[in-house]
């Protein structure tokens, strides 16, 4: 597919828009693609676009490894290989009429973004919707323009580690603010994405609010070579993160995530 647009989000993080051609690229929120850069290799990257815009395929990539750095060097007109979409999705259909609490930080908004888009597009189908989004500093927040747009219909609660005097959001670690989100635990479905250690803290805060494990959904990251459940790399106990995940309800992986070096 051809890159149609590259936008710098933060330092080292870029959003690529790809042109999937006439057939479009339908996907479910939370699914990922294997992206291939000529001669460099292939990496799994979650899809970050609007699921109702199959005419544009969007990926947000942070330059951290050989392939992701090569992805971030791509310019409009360049071509890359795309396989997918693979994996499970956020349960956006199963939680209609419910309250939704998104909790994420930094690049973690990228895999959640299609779910936020979906809910924004179908706002009337859902109850109270909160997006609690943390970053180290305001310039590390992704999709700042959309955060503005979304805040018209959802409660967007940004939290940063440190900021200047003109910052109007929260200051502190994102997990500190979960307890203040005045959610109705019986009504709320939580969807979270961050590092595994951060998600552990997020989950204990969500549990303290009274949100049970089965109402918490998260997305996991593992090494993947194929995306098809054949290369063996992404195993987490009996599950293959590429085909059984990457999105899981927490009660299904709680025991697995509690095991060290599984």
């Amino acid at each position: 597919m051809t890159v149609s647009k590259v936008e710098k989000e933060t330092r080292g993080t870029f959003t690529l828009e790809l042109d999937p051609g006439e057939s479009g690229f339908p996907f479910l929120p939370g699914q990922f693609n294997m992206l291939y850069v000529f001669g460099n290799g292939e990496v799994p990257i979650s899809i970050s676009g609007d699921p109702e815009r199959p005419d544009i395929l969007v990926h947000t990539v942070r330059a951290v490894g050989k392939v992701s750095k090569a992805l971030c060097r791509l310019r409009p007109g360049d071509v890359l290989g795309v396989r997918g979409p693979y994996g499970s999705s956020w349960p956006v259909d199963a939680c209609r009429e419910r309250d939704i609490l998104f909790v994420t930080g930094g690049l973690g908004l990228a895999p959640l973004r299609p779910a936020v888009f979906h809910i924004f597009n179908h706002r009337r189908d859902y109850g109270k919707v909160i997006l609690l989004y943390g970053a180290r500093s305001p310039d590390r927040l992704l999709y700042t323009k959309e955060l503005e747009t979304w805040s018209r219909a959802l409660r967007v609660e940004p939290a940063v580690g440190s900021a200047g005097p003109d910052w109007k959001g929260h200051v502190g670690i994102v997990t500190n603010f979960i307890a203040r989100m005045d959610c109705d635990p019986a009504q709320t479905k939580a969807m979270i994405c961050s590092s595994e250690s951060m998600m552990r803290s997020m989950i204990s805060e969500l549990n303290l609010l009274g949100i049970p494990d089965r109402e918490i959904h998260l997305t996991l990251e593992r090494n993947m070579k194929c995306g098809l459940g054949l290369c063996g790399h992404c195993q987490l106990g009996p599950t293959f993160v590429c085909k059984n995940g990457p999105v899981y309800s927490y009660d299904r992986v709680k025991e697995l995530l509690a095991k060290r070096e599984l």
Partner: peptide
């Protein structure tokens, strides 16, 4: 490939299974 190799579980930031015990156990 082999699950005994450190690279097998590598993700950004490090491998999931660092110790030999975890790799034999896997």
């Amino acid at each position: 490939d082999s699950c005994f190799l450190l690279d097998h579980s590598y993700i950004h930031g490090g491998s999931v299974r660092v110790s030999s015990r975890s790799r034999y156990r896997q």
